[in-house]
Design a protein around this nucleic acid. Structure first.
Length: 577
RNA sequence: GCGCCUGUAGCUCAGUUGGAUAGAGCAACUGCCUUCUAAGCAGUGGGUCAGGGGUUCGAAUCCCUUCAGGCGCACCA
C-alpha cells in the first residue's frame, strides 16, 4: 500500500534535510512501486562526500542489482525515469530539485534547488528548537544509571568519563522525546563500607594518640583522615579507645559513607552533572527487597542450594556458570542486591535500561542479563555501555597512581587544573569503548588550540557580530532574521553552511539511535570548522544592508545549532571569550 | 587456556551501521591582525586502515585466522 504523495504540504515544503531525505525515500519507494519492485524496509540514503555529487544520494540501485539480476545502472535509469513521471504528476514538487542524476557504479544523486534550501533554512529560524527535534522516543521511559561509584573514596577520572557520557546521553535522549530518569546507585551496604568505617575509625583513634591497627585492605587515602577529623570535631573524643564493634562500627560506617557521598555529590555538581534518583543499596535490604527477589526466583525454580550457599541458575540463561547469591557464611553477595536492584528498575515501568559501566565490569553483563530474563524480561531491555579505561598522562608520561597508598588524581583535581568544559569535551570526543589517553599538559597547555574553545569561539564570535549589528540598527533575533531574504547569499560557503545546518537534526537522530553523544561533538567541530573560514573571508556586516541581513540570518542559524549542541553535551556556550 | 574491547597519518582520534578518490585536530614548515574577537584564517607534506585468507557488484566496516595492547574469567566489590 503506497502512501499518498503530497509534496506541497507545508510540513514537507518548509522543513529540513532530514525531511528532505524522507522526501527522497518516499519518492524512491513510490518509483519502486511503479516498477513492481518491493522496496526494502529502509531505503539507504547518504550525504555524498563530494559536493558535486549532489545533496543526497542513494546506492539503492546497486543493492537491488542482485535480486533483480540486472545491471545497477539500468535499474537506476528506470528509477529516475519513474521519478520524472511522479514529479510531473505531483505538481510543484519538481520545484525542489535542481537535478537528479546517475553517477558512478549506479548511485542516484539528488540536488536540491538553492531556493528550496533557503526556504527550509528560514523555516528553521522561525521555528527555533522545534526544528531540531524529532520525537523518536514517543514518551518511552528510559532509566539511565551511571557513575554509581562506591562511596568509599572520591571520584577519579574514569568516573568523570562515565559522568560526562551519561549526562550527555540523558540530555540527548530527553531532547529526542524519551522520558529519561538519571540514576546513581549507591553501594552503601556490605563489606566495603564497613572497611571504610574501620579505616576512619583507625584514623580517628590516631588523632587522639591511640595506635589502632589499620585494617589490612583499608582505605589509605588522605580523605579518610579528613573524615576522621570531621567526626572528631562533631563528636569529640567519645569514641576514643573503644573497640570497633556495633553500634560504634555502624555509626562510623554510615557517617563516613554519608560524608563521602556528600563529597561525591559536590564534585558531580561542580562537573555540571545532575541525577534524578540516588538509589541506596542499603534501602533495598531495609525494605526486604533482596530476600524478596531471591524468594521470587526460587518460586520460579531458578535457585538451588549447594555447599551451604544459595545459587542462581544463571547458566539457564546463557551465562557461563551459576552464581552465588548467598554465601555459605550467610552474607549476600553484591550480585544478590544487584538482581533486586534491576528488578526494581524494570518494575518501575521502564521500557529500556541503560547502564554505563567501567569496561572492567564487562564480565558481569551476562549474569545481570540472565537475572533479568529469569525475572521475566527480555534481556534486550538492558543495554550496557562500557566505558574504557582513562589513562592519565602528564606531558606524555603516565601519572603514577597507587591505589594501595591511596594516591590517585581525583576528578576534582583534574577539573580544577583544566576546567570542567574542557574535561567533558575531551571525554565526549571519543566513543565510549575506545581507550582514552588524557594528557593534562595537552588538555591545559594546549588550551589555545583545544577543540572545545574552537567550537565555543565560533559562537562567541557570532554573538560579537550581533552586538555590533545591534549598534548599527539591525534587529537581531531569530524571528525577524527568519523573515530576511536569503537571495543575496551567493557564496558557495554560504550554501554549504546552510546545508550543514539543515543536517543537524539528522546528526542528532544518528547520535540518539546509536546512543553515541560523541557524534554531536564531531558535528559541532565540523560546523565551527566551516564557520571560521567563512567569517575570515567574508564580512558579515557588509556594505549593502540586504546582504548583511542575509548573512546575519546565516550566523543566527549557526549560533542556534552550536548553542543547542553544546547544551546537549553539557558544555557552556559563553557569549564572550 | 577461555571471553570482551581496541589496533586507521609521527601523536590523539573520527569514519553516517557494507558504498564513490579513507577524514579531522595536534605536531612540522610557510604566510596573514589600522576593517565584525588571531582561542582565528590561508597554504604544504604525511596512509600496506596491524598481517593473511574469505564472503560480493563493492570491505576500514561482516566471517575465519595470526600478531600486539588493555580488561575480565570469585562463596570480591
Amino acid at each position: 500500500m503506497l502512501f499518498p504523495l503530497k509534496f506541497d504540504k507545508p510540513a514537507v515544503r518548509a522543513l529540513n534535510l532530514r525531511l528532505m531525505t524522507e522526501l527522497v525515500r518516499k519518492i524512491l519507494s513510490e518509483a519502486l512501486g511503479r516498477m513492481g519492485v518491493s522496496a526494502p524496509e529502509r531505503i539507504e540514503v547518504e550525504v555524498p562526500r563530494e559536493e558535486s555529487m549532489g545533496d543526497i544520494a542513494t546506492p539503492l540501485a546497486m543493492s537491488l542489482a542482485r535480486t533483480l539480476k540486472r545491471p545497477p545502472r539500468k535499474i537506476a535509469e528506470e528509477i529516475v525515469e519513474k521519478i520524472g513521471a511522479i514529479l510531473g504528476l505531483a505538481g510543484g514538487a519538481e520545484g525542489d530539485f535542481e537535478k537528479i542524476e546517475i553517477a558512478g557504479p549506479g548511485y542516484i544523486n539528488f540536488t536540491f534547488k538553492r531556493e528550496s534550501l533557503y526556504r527550509s533554512f528560514s523555516g528553521f529560524l522561525r521555528q527555533g528548537e522545534a526544528f531540531f527535534r524529532k520525537d523518536i522516543g514517543k514518551g518511552r521511559k528510559i532509566l539511565i544509571e551511571f557513575v554509581s561509584a562506591n562511596p568509599t573514596g572520591p571520584l577519579h577520572l574514569g568516573h568523570g568519563r562515565g559522568a560526562a557520557l551519561g549526562a550527555a546521553l540523558s540530555n540527548l535522549l530527553a531532547a529526542a522525546g524519551f522520558k529519561v530518569t538519571r540514576e546513581y546507585y549507591i553501594n552503601d551496604a556490605g563489606r566495603q563500607v564497613g572497611l571504610l568505617g574501620e579505616s576512619v575509625f583507625a584514623r580517628y583513634q590516631e588523632l587522639f594518640g591511640i595506635a589502632y591497627p589499620f585494617p589490612e585492605d583499608g582505605y589509605r587515602g588522605e580523605y579518610v583522615i579528613d573524615i576522621a577529623r570531621g567526626i572528631a570535631q562533631a563528636e569529640g573524643d567519645r569514641y576514643k579507645g573503644l573497640e570497633f564493634a556495633s553500634p560504634n562500627s555502624d555509626y562510623f560506617a554510615n557517617t563516613a559513607c554519608a560524608m563521602m557521598l556528600a563529597v561525591i555529590k559536590t564534585d558531580l555538581e561542580g562537573f555540571g552533572v545532575a541525577f534524578d534518583v540516588w538509589q541506596s543499596e542499603k534501602e533495598l535490604y531495609d525494605k526486604n527487597e533482596v530476600p524478596g527477589t531471591i524468594e521470587y526466583l526460587s518460586q520460579k525454580g531458578f535457585v538451588y542450594e549447594k555447599e551451604g550457599a544459595t545459587w542462581f541458575k544463571a547458566t539457564l540463561f546463557g551465562d557461563e556458570k551459576d552464581r552465588v547469591m548467598i554465601k555459605s557464611g550467610g552474607q549476600y553477595t553484591y550480585f544478590a542486591s544487584d538482581i533486586a536492584y534491576h528488578k526494581k528498575k524494570v518494575d518501575g515501568g521502564f521500557d529500556e535500561l541503560i547502564n554505563i559501566w567501567g569496561a572492567d565490569h564487562h564480565g558481569y553483563i551476562p549474569r545481570v542479563k540472565a537475572a533479568l530474563e529469569a525475572l521475566g524480561y527480555e534481556k534486550e531491555r538492558l543495554k550496557v555501555l562500557l566505558v574504557q579505561i582513562v589513562s592519565l598522562l602528564r606531558g606524555g608520561k603516565p601519572v603514577q597512581m597507587s591505589k594501595r597508598a591511596g594516591e590517585f588524581v581525583t576528578l576534582r583535581e583534574v577539573i580544577e587544573e583544566v576546567g570542567a568544559d574542557t574535561t567533558k569535551f575531551i571525554f565526549l570526543t571519543r566513543k565510549a569503548d575506545s581507550h582514552l589517553d588524557f594528557d593534562l599538559e595537552v588538555a591545559k597547555a594546549a588550551s589555545a588550540e583545544n577543540p572545545v574553545y574552537y567550537v565555543q569561539y565560533a559562537n562567541a564570535r557570532i554573538n560579537s557580530i550581533f552586538r555590533n549589528a545591534a549598534e548599527k540598527g539591525f534587529t537581531v533575533d531569530s524571528d525577524s532574521l527568519g523573515r530576511a531574504g536569503l537571495s543575496p547569499l551567493s557564496e558557495p560557503e554560504e550554501t554549504r553552511l546552510i546545508k550543514k545546518i539543515l543536517l543537524y537534526p539528522a546528526a542528532l537522530e544518528a547520535a540518539v539511535q546509536a546512543r553515541e553523544p560523541h557524534r554531536i561533538t564531531y558535528y559541532l567541530q565540523e560546523l565551527a570548522g566551516m564557520f571560521h573560514p567563512y567569517y575570515n573571508r567574508h564580512r558579515i556586516l557588509a556594505d549593502e544592508r540586504e546582504l548583511s541581513l542575509a548573512r546575519l540570518s546565516l550566523c543566527m542559524g549557526v549560533g542556534l545549532v552550536l548553542k543547542d549542541g553544546l547544551r546537549l553535551l553539557g558544555v557552556a556556550a559563553p557569549e564572550k571569550m
